[in-house]
Design a protein around this nucleic acid. Sequence first.
DNA 1: TGGTGATTTGGTGTATTTGCCAAGCGTTAA
DNA 2: TTAACGCTTGGCAAATACACCAAATCACCA
Lengths: 108, 108
Amino acid sequence: MNEKQRAMYEARARIVKALAHPARLMMVDELAKQPLCVCDIRELVGSDLSTVSKHLSILKNAGIVEDEKRGSQVFYSLRCPCAVNFFSCAEKVLKTTAKDQMRLVSRK
Amino acid sequence: MNEKQRAMYEARARIVKALAHPARLMMVDELAKQPLCVCDIRELVGSDLSTVSKHLSILKNAGIVEDEKRGSQVFYSLRCPCAVNFFSCAEKVLKTTAKDQMRLVSRK
DNA sequence: TGGTGATTTGGTGTATTTGCCAAGCGTTAA
DNA sequence: TTAACGCTTGGCAAATACACCAAATCACCA
């Protein structure tokens, strides 16, 4: 386990960590469909504007989204569409867990 | 934004959060190759044994890995191989960021 | 039964994350 | 220029995550 490897896992973890919040996952999900301005995103997640802005800056610093000023508004868009892949795997894990629990229950 | 959707994003976030740590990412990476006992994993990541055990229990509670007792040892294995997909996307994000920075530098 | 190795659990101090409020800042409209 | 709008930033309290130590558990063997 050398230094280089450790740095690589830390870099990856920074990205995963940036996604590790329900509001941020929702934002990524919505931005996968189309770019949105902060006020739109704010309506979708329904939190305080400053909270939304901070979530977006976390995603931006991780390199997951990018921003673009248009007049007085700021539009955010997904920089790496593959971020949606996270969902499909998370979904699989959830399904597997659900199945296992179902099995436990029905065996009773 | 209804209750059901919110619950879904929270469930997904729990899984992503379980992966959001360099040591846990490394464990998943190694477990993707083969099941390993706690002591093996401990050597790979090089932390305190109790720390490793707690990381593993986080992954287990999230449904990402499962454990199996063999004598006095406990072997962990990956329950959803797709967890490795997280890496490829994280890698893509990192590469995109690196490219953008490279472009910035060379334009100067 | 007592001891040893393998792992988990409890407890504690510290660091990080989160959400909200208030203040700041750039852009557009009057 | 002043006001309004859209967004970001600073600051703070509460919640959560982390790593380590010590103690407990559990399987196995002498």
